[in-house]
């Protein structure tokens, strides 16, 4: 099967078709990793690029992401059987006081499209929860999202809480959201800021594979 077809149907947001195509590809003996990389991840990357360029909007990204997760469900058992592991683990949340989650959800999908495991902590996440998750799940990256000037400061608290817990050296902290910028990232001692989800995923993938982001 031509895996580009999976990528194409994923970009069109057709969850049921993607699910069926993934199953068909598996039945034809295509390796699960190839389906993941050339089908699902390729499709999601393409959507991410279009979103970044202003050619796709939030709904298109959400439906593509839903299709990706449906396809991934079918793939998961085979990936596990083949010994394919996620390339890294990221915990992600909208910080305490912030209930905006549209951007965070897009960041999640883009991270997953890079083959990363994402622990989604949801919204209104206190610093302690990030710390606890890093400890329990051995995440390499903490991603904080904040859309309000009121809640931006909480991202600094996350950095401090990681320091206090003695975990700061083990993780990179990435931050983002409408009011955040590079200068703020430096100010609070976080590691990386990116303006959009596609770039966030690129940086995260680089960190997890030991490359220079």
């Amino acid at each position: 099967m031509d895996l580009a077809l999976i990528s194409e149907r994923l970009q069109a947001g057709k969850a049921k078709e993607v699910k069926a195509l993934v199953q068909q590809a598996l039945d034809e003996g295509v390796p699960a990793l190839a389906i993941l990389e050339q089908g699902l991840m390729a499709g999601m990357n393409a959507v991410g690029v279009r979103f970044k360029n202003g050619e796709a909007y939030v709904p298109e990204v959400l439906v593509a992401a839903r299709a990706m997760s449906k396809g991934a469900e079918v793939l998961k058992p085979q990936l596990a059987a083949d010994g394919v592991k996620a390339t890294g683990c990221v915990c992600l949340g909208s910080v305490k006081g912030d209930l905006h989650d549209v951007g965070k959800n897009i960041v999640k999908m883009m991270l997953e499209s890079k083959g990363l495991e994402v622990v989604d902590l949801g919204i209104d996440v206190p610093p302690e929860t990030f710390v606890q998750t890093v400890r329990e799940r051995h995440c390499q990256i903490v991603c904080c999202s904040a859309l309000l000037t009121t809640t931006m400061g909480v991202m600094g608290d996350v950095v401090k809480a990681l320091e206090a817990a003695g975990l700061r050296d083990q993780v990179k902290v990435m931050i983002g959201g409408a009011p955040v910028n590079e200068a703020f990232c430096k100010e609070i001692g976080a590691d990386f800021y990116t303006a959009d989800a596609a770039r966030c995923a690129e940086v995260a993938a680089a960190i997890c594979s030991g490359r220079q982001p």
Binding site: G13, V58, P59, E60, L62, V63, R66, D101, V102, N105
Partner: peptide
């Protein structure tokens, strides 16, 4: 529900 509604717009 924001996400659900936005996705439904495309269907």
């Amino acid at each position: 529900g924001m996400d659900e509604f936005l996705m439904d717009l495309l269907d």
